[in-house]
Structures are given as structure tokens and as C-alpha cells.
Write a protein that binds this DNA or RNA. Sequence first.
RNA 1: GGUAGGGUGGCCGAGCGGUUUAAGGCGACAGUCUUGAAAACUGUUGUACCAGAAAUGGUACCGUGAGUUCGAAUCUCACCCCUACCGCCA
Length: 427
Amino acid sequence: MLDINLVRNNPEEIKKALAKKKVPPAAVDLLLEKDIKWREEIKKIEDLRAQLNQLSKARKIEEAKAVKEELKKAEAVLPELETERNLAWIKLPNIPSEDTPVGLDESENKPIRKWGEPAKFNFTPKDHLELGKALGIIDVETAGKVSGSRFAYLKGDAVRLQMAIIKFVFDTLGNEKILKKIANRVEKGYSSKPFTLVLPPMMIKPDVFKRMARLDPGQEEERYHLQKDDLYLVGSAEHTLGPIHMDSSIPEDQLPIRYVGYSTSFRREAGSYGRDVKGILRMHQFDKLEMESFTLPENSSKEQQFIVAIQEYLMQQLAIPYQVVSVCTGDMGGPDYRQIDIEAWLSGQNKYRETHTSDLMTDYQSRRLATKIKRKDGKTELAHMNDATAFALGRIIIAILENYQNKDGSVTVPKVLRKYAGIKKIK
RNA sequence: GGUAGGGUGGCCGAGCGGUUUAAGGCGACAGUCUUGAAAACUGUUGUACCAGAAAUGGUACCGUGAGUUCGAAUCUCACCCCUACCGCCA
């Protein structure tokens, strides 16, 4: 959520900034109105309580009783005012950065740079499903019978490929030498502290989910809920990596703190019924390697650059052509200050498709999570949080299959993955 | 799931209806002393919110939520978590 003082003191600027994210000015006014009502009531209650405390100390029992009655009435009103204020509050997304392109939707995202040349084939390239089916490594029919649409069995060399990618990422992000080279590209001497490898929980409590700003009104539809235990299945490792430091202060000298987590992601994909139904591009369940990092506010933009540089490094190692895209205000996530996507070239579809995203959330999440940093002088402030994809395994396997396919329907394994996968070719 | 014992400040630990404004200790920070350090001594030492330009004042917080009371860390109820043992399980 946004800093309430910022909204109170600069309502017009906030309105202007949020308008870029398609938020009507009335939404800001609503919060201000609810906030005033809440403040009036809390003031009233605290004054009464002060009075009551005084009378109690003096053992003026009869007078205290009268004040207590009044207090009870005032207190009864508060919860509703608080709920209304909160609802208006969490509805406001984060303010977008100055360098974020203003736009209404996906079509106005701005490609920043391209890397790699799409391979030229002397035959008509197939899409990943056709290839995967023929190779016997992707089976959506059986999965349809067993689990329904948007599920798949990955088999044989597809599994070897996935395991290889996981090991490759963990080896890279845990290796300070490699990170140092990447960090120096961002800024000479920038922190090359390795990522801590994590296998996070894949279920999360509703209140923590909300504090991550991932279960706000409108988002419930996208989540799988386990009714008996009142737990949600995570939609990304981010959801349980982000709260690792909730309700605590991290000493300045321990930052940045970086995690790379591997987990399955569960998404209902409600409202995307007709989209990407072919193959394994959009699934109810897929595995993903996710980076999450906590930094000082003054370093968070640099950290995002570092993270994007890592994403690009990983793609370059796989030698898959891609473009880096600055996501526009209308298409970016609510908690985002700046969102940068990477789109991999898919030869079978003859276009770039989103495979990575990098979100700088500034203090938007850490405010509700109460994840703070403690400065050397003892002062505390909110940490900044970055979240980004290392590899979405389903989609990167698609990219490998389509870009590395051969005329005979076999697929060459990218060089860096061969020693991990133990195979050179899928045939 | 069952039984038993627990959850108090950065940590340990006392308190079990009103001088609690949470004792005492450890740690941390500052000062005195010292060439420097240690020791000793002295002092400081949480978070959030509300009002205020600020100084400051107020409110809340002893696992969480509700309740009893003029007054709750302290009493009641429910729940959560931890530890041990039993059951079940990979």
C-alpha cells in the first residue's frame, strides 16, 4: 500500500501519477474522505480513554462508568470506518516511475533492446506442442483426461531438460564470480552477494497473502483455495519468498538479501478461457525459478538493473533471442513502480512472447509486511523489494524446443545445459 | 489427532487485579577514567498510530482474538504457535 502521509499531503500529485495507471481521481478522494472519518473517530476514542484512565487512577468509579458507556458507543463505530478506509487504501496501486512509458495496454509497451538473431530455418518451423508430441515428451491429452484442460505431462528428455535448467540457474545465482561480472556491468563494485537457494512453501495463509498485495479484491478469482485448512496455493515462489522478513528489521550491513526460489505456481487462469489454449504456454500448474531481493531504498533501482542483467545473462547462455520491454503504466502490475519484461523469440509462433518479468515494488509490499531496514544510526525505514523471474520452466522449454529444432523433428540441447542434462539432442 | 508443559522488551528472566511508568540481568550505544583498550562507574536503550511547525502530549501493544472489571501482563473463554512424548505418515 501507499504511504498514507504522502496521499494526505500531495493528493493532486498522487491523482496525476495514478491516472497513468487508469485510476480515477475519485478513488484518491474516497481514501482521503474515509481517512478523515477514521481519524476523527480515533481521536474521539483516545480522548475518552485518556479520561477513563485518569478517573480509574483516582478511583472515581461512578464517573468512570459514565465515560465507559460513551467509549463503548464510540468504539462500536470504529471497525466499519477502519474497514472502509483500508479498502479504499489497498485499492490504490503503487506510483509508476518517471521512466515508465504511459499507455493503456500491452500494445504500448516499449521494447528497449533486442539480443540475438532469430534462427533462419530452411524448413517450416513447428510449434512446441507439435514437436513435443512427436518426441513423446509433452502429453496434454492424457493430462486432460486425468486433470482437465491446462495440465500436461512432461516426460523423458523434457524432464531432463527441466532439471538441467534448475541446476544451471542455482549454479549461476549461487556463484559470486559470475555475479561479480554481471554486477560490474551495472556499476563498478556493485554488490555481487550470491542468492540464497530456497525451496519455499507452496501454501500460504490468507492474511500473509494479503500483506503481499497478492490477494486483494479482484485477485481471489485467480487463486486456488483449500477450504478445509483456509490456505491458498501460491501463484509464484514470490508469494512465500516475499514474507520471509515480515515483521522484522534487517540491519543495513546485511543488505542486499537475495533469494532464488524454486516452486510450482498454481493459477486458475479465470477469465482467460480462450487464450493460449494450445500447448503448455498457459497452465494451471507450472514450475518457476524466482528471484526476490531486499535492498536499501537508494539501491533498489540499481538492484532491478542487476536483476534484469542476470535475466539477460541467463538467456544469452541459452542463446535464445529475446527483447527487453519496458512495460507501460496501463499494463504493469498494481504493486509495481517499474516493470521490465523479457520476451523470448518463439520460432514456432514467429514472434516474441513474455517469458520473464522483473518488478520493482519499492516499499509498496514492505509497508504491509512491516519489512524494515535498520540504518547504522539506529533509524528504521521500509525496505525496498524486487521480484523477478529467473526462468519460468514451461515457457523456457517452449523457447528451447522451438528455437533449437531441426528439420528431422529432433531438438538440439543448448550447449550450457548439456552437461547438466546428460544429453545433446532430444530425438 | 491425543496428553503434558510453555509463549513477557534485541536476548535471558521476574511479576499472576491498582506506586508496572514491566523488577533484575545480559547485550548494544554514549560519557567519565586511560597513551589506547579492558575493567569499573554513570547515563541511554522498543514499535505503531493520533494531534502538533516543533518541543511535546495522548492512545495502544506482555502469542492472537473476544470477554469480565472503574481498572487486566495478571481473571474467563476460544484460537494460534513452540517443546516433549504417544498415534499416523514420506
